[in-house]
Design a protein around this nucleic acid. Structure first.
Lengths: 255, 255
DNA sequence: TTCCAACCTTGCCCCGGGGACAAGGTCAAG
DNA sequence: CTTGACCTTGTCCCCGGGGCAAGGTTGGAA
């Protein structure tokens, strides 16, 4: 006959835990000896092992009696949950390894792929981070729309002219808004913008939050970029003001 | 700029959790807009993702700031813990499959092996369970001693005479203690006992709790077995009473 | 025998990591 | 201008025990 401590050690739990299982009615209270100590037999060892096995598999104590009485399928379900939790932990290990890579941590896979393709272009870190932050916010606000835009934007990275405009913007980021060289960049950018896929071509464009459009075409704190936006928009509207009203969203965005 | 709900959704947690992280100083409180709502930027998304990643990896919230400031080795250590937890869950899946196998659930591997070898002998379920319960209690009381005894007992299962005595005991379990057939069994058992390894041959016999010896040689509720114990002990002491005093523990035990 | 450490008993409060709900203020779109 | 989905602070509650108090018991060694 075992004392509570011997029973608990055998099962790998604390004596307190065994008392809790008694209190919750999971494990029947055993006989007491002359001094009031609980005394356990082999059946109690078996019963406790079952309870501990289920509890450690994540079954809430309150559900354990039902599971013990139920059929095999309940246990299969618990096993499936356990398998899922193992997968989850494995995914979390991967995330842990990316702890100091904000893009992998915060962006959906397609945006990560975009950033991977963007990096070899060799923009400044500041520009890259600005682009990354734009996508982070866009994906948080409207994941599906953002991933649609991402697709077209990723394709654009194969376009040498687009890449050239990106590099121009990169160089211009700290220029004065009055810098005369901005004109030339605006000309190239406007030419590009005319054959770029526009956000308005998206299937659900009317549902796209205005915020997202503003984010992806915003000037992000650079006065020179703000000025470039103005110049490009002006050029675009001049070129097509016979056929359509100006469309601010058509300015080529740097992301 | 994101609201708390958008931020939380992006990170896969509840808005409440984000407020908790603010209250614990893990995540800096952001600016508020005109109506008092918190407004988050991309950096907050990154910071929150880091916090959530660590929290989901099992790091207590109170330790997260230190980990974020610490070097790589802290994260490697967390990763190692995560790996261990995965292994643990995998072991628990195995145990879950053995939920209705008391021996696998409660006994050490060597005792499981013993029971596996015992089963084909074809004893009654009652006898087998009595043996199993004896080992459960013995292993709980004194695991190392029990495993030493188990080794010699497992070897005995190769001895046809020992197996024959086991079968005799199995048949006799419900006989009356006055049954004359018990005599013949006692004769065979006593002959066997004279060449069986005795518990007193164990290296640390003096440390063996008396309880364990009683358990493994006890009669476990069968009056016929109790009588057999008497008969065997009597025979053994008659045979050697010139050289040694009677030794109750030398009765051949059925386990 | 007497001692001591290691048990055991009940009872109560505490913890982390949020969830639930209240009672109200605010936003955006139709 | 309403409606429903947000947001704000605040409070209480949950599980699965851990820790401690304050006392009684046991068993082996000196």
């Amino acid at each position: 006959m075992l004392t509570i401590g011997q029973l608990a050690r055998q099962a790998g739990v604390s004596a307190k835990a065994v008392r809790v299982y008694h209190a919750k009615g999971l494990l029947p209270e055993p006989e007491r000896d002359a001094s009031g100590y609980r005394r356990y037999d082999a059946q109690a060892v078996i019963d406790l092992a079952r309870i501990v096995t289920l509890a450690q598999a994540g079954v809430p104590l309150a559900r354990i009696p039902q599971v013990l009485d139920a059929d095999e399928t309940a246990i299969e379900q618990i096993d499936a949950e356990l398998r899922d939790r193992i997968r989850q932990l494995q995914r979390r290990r991967v995330r842990l390894r990316d702890l100091d890579r904000p893009d992998r941590l915060c962006l959906p896979p397609e945006a990560v792929a975009f950033m991977e393709r963007l990096r070899p272009i060799g923009l400044s870190e500041r520009h890259e981070n600005a682009i990354r932050d734009g996508w982070i916010l866009a994906c948080a606000l409207a994941p599906d729309v953002s991933s649609a835009i991402l697709a077209s934007r990723t394709a654009l990275l194969d376009d040498p002219e687009y890449v050239a405009v990106l590099r121009d913007y990169d160089e211009a980021i700290d220029w004065s808004p009055d810098d005369p060289r901005l004109e030339a960049i605006a000309v190239t950018a406007a030419a590009l913008a005319r054959r770029m896929p526009l956000p308005s071509d998206l299937p659900d464009f009317r549902k796209v939050p205005r915020q997202v459009v503003e984010l992806l075409s915003g000037h992000r704190g650079s006065p020179a970029w703000k000025r470039l936006d103005q110049l490009v928009t002006q050029r675009l509207s001049e070129a097509k003001n016979a056929t359509s009203e100006p469309n601010e969203a058509a300015a080529p965005d740097r992301s």
